[in-house]
Design a protein around this nucleic acid. Structure first.
Lengths: 348, 348
DNA sequence: CTGAAAGCGCTTACAG
DNA sequence: CTGAAAGCGCTTACAG
């Protein structure tokens, strides 16, 4: 690459960075005027403004946000803590959030708890120390006291992908119990009776409710039974391990359908079953959950319970923006509806 | 959920948040002592320290990071800008980075350019204003001047997934030209001669080099030809559209192999071909790139050029930490090797 | 519209 | 080891 001329000098020889003071001096105006150009340009004469802007550009001045924040007392950024960034479900939700926030010129800082309460706590510390204006969180651990403290400190809090379980915070969720029912009912309707529900940990609200929904349907069906295979995480590896366990039960006692708590698990299950020579769906049907894009392109396209991912993200962002604008806004408890998507993994 | 007792009061009735001053007053020590407990606990008598810590906990004090940063002049956080957060390749790399940084108690702030130079620029603004201690970036636009300015301001910069193209910055890349060669050679070796390379935009370094590598192999093979189908993005939708175009050429003039610039495109191509009744690999072979986890679980498992994703992330993080520790550290130009992974999409 | 002054909440020498 | 004082770089009234 050709060497380009040094257009800027963002730091003087001492490495000290250019400050508003330097800009003011170079432009021959006062410090307050520079700040006005930055924050309320309409209050400055066009000629002055353009001149200051030119100097800013020339010196390579970039405002120190820590100083701005300390004085102004506001941080425009929004923090988001997701359960697993490697799960496309969450990046799709985050995408929806980012879009909406971007329209309001608010940066999104993404944190990944990886379903680990300690990492979740570390991100809460970070966001609390940073005094972010808003927080979107899909909780893992017992974070209610932390969320209350954040709120008391002025941070807007919205719970994503599960209900808040309290009237104190708005939440945007999808009806997991209903999703569990829909998925299980489809398996029953297609003749399955011995269903294994794979997912976990069971302390996770989403897993618990999906399982409950499935249980209800099975309980209402004579001759049907549901077993729960708990996994430590919700990824393909966990799915493969659980499937291996089920295959080891032998042809007679293994289930005739597996309902996975999410698609990543379902994809792992599918791989393990195929590897073990179990035919899908002939021998064992597989139902996924989320309907991530990869579900449709799987070796045996996955039937799944679709969650409106982008909508979840957009509504969450909108709700958060409302709370930021008015902390006293009415608490919302939005519950979106899941939808059955039938593909080859359940119907040959 | 049961109502829990309010254990903390992070803000007084005015909403003003608890400061070190309040802690000092409540603990009956001076302000400097509180700061010492926070930053150099070993310099404070254990009894005093424990007492102050108890008060901190009691009052729900959380340090204001903006103030800390302004005074201390350091921000422990590291920023990372990826091309596409919805591409598992990048979340896998980010995972590797996050692991390493976590060991050093440094938070990772993830930004998504979505292959858009304007969004990339917005994140650069954010990270520059925040004075992050380090930046990991897979560039889209012409960011060299910006990177220089960040470096001059004291931010460590490391380029990820492509070479820096200058000796000014360390970079961790995978040999894309070699990857292009490996993939194309395999297609040639399995008898393909009319290869379409699908990806884009061609301004993207990775695409350019992979294409160059493929071109070299094709040029060295009598009777072989390579066409380039440029796409605006690198996702499944782009792959489907490109494949539709190729299918429309008719049986006689369509390619007998498609080399996709990444696996998402390859998965899209696979879907469109299957939908159009084109047999894979009998009629058309498909070669992907990256070897994301989903490549192996595709309808027709994808052959792919594997990139060492986690390693890329770990080495990038390590290099960045080195530059943060010593800005004068020798510039590294690490190039990792890609590896061919053969599956059914190229060999029936 | 412009300019001088105060102060946001910390950390860091520095004196005791 | 502890405490009083200065100052990081901004923004915000406030007076001119």
């Amino acid at each position: 690459m050709a060497t380009e001329p040094r257009l800027t000098r963002a730091a003087d020889p001492n490495g000290r960075s250019v400050s508003v003071k330097d800009v003011a001096a170079a432009a021959g105006v006062s410090l307050g005027t520079v700040s006005n150009v930055l924050n309320r340009p309409e209050k400055v004469l066009p000629a002055t403004r353009d001149h200051v802007l030119a100097v800013i550009d020339d010196l390579g001045f970039v405002r120190n946000d820590a100083a701005r924040q300390l004085r102004a007392g506001t941080n425009r950024a929004v923090g988001m803590i997701v359960l697993d960034v490697r799960n496309p479900f969450f990046t799709d939700v985050a995408q929806g959030v980012e879009e909406r926030l971007g329209e309001h010129r608010r940066p999104l800082i993404l944190g990944n708890s990886g379903q680990d309460a300690r990492r979740e706590s570390t991100y809460l510390d970070l966001f609390e120390e940073q005094r972010v204006s808003g927080l979107l969180i899909t909780p893992v651990g017992q974070v209610l006291p932390r969320l209350r403290r954040l709120r008391d400190r002025g941070t807007a809090v919205v719970v994503v992908d599960r209900r808040a379980g309290t009237r104190e915070f708005s939440s945007i969720a999808v009806d997991d119990k209903r999703g569990g029912r829909i998925g299980a009912q489809h398996l029953i309707d297609t003749g399955r009776r011995r269903i294994a529900f794979v997912g976990g940990p069971k302390g996770l609200s989403q897993v618990k409710h999906r399982l409950q929904g499935a249980q209800e349907v099975v309980d209402a069906t004579v001759g049907a039974q549901l077993t729960f295979v708990e996994t430590p995480t919700m990824d393909a590896v966990a799915g493969r391990r659980a499937a291996d366990q089920l295959v080891a039960l032998g042809k007679r006692s293994r289930p005739d359908a597996i309902f996975a708590a999410n698609d990543l698990i379902a994809l792992g299950v599918l791989q393990a079953l195929t590897f073990a020579g179990v035919r899908v769906p002939d021998d064992v049907a597989i139902m996924g959950y989320d309907d991530i894009d990869f579900a449709a392109s799987a070796a045996i396209p996955l039937s799944s319970v679709r969650q409106p991912r982008e909508q979840l993200g957009r509504v969450a962002a909108d709700t958060l923006l409302d709370v930021i604008a008015d902390p006293g806004a009415k608490v919302r408890d939005v519950v979106l509806e899941p939808e059955l998507v039938v593909r080859r993994s359940t119907v040959g």
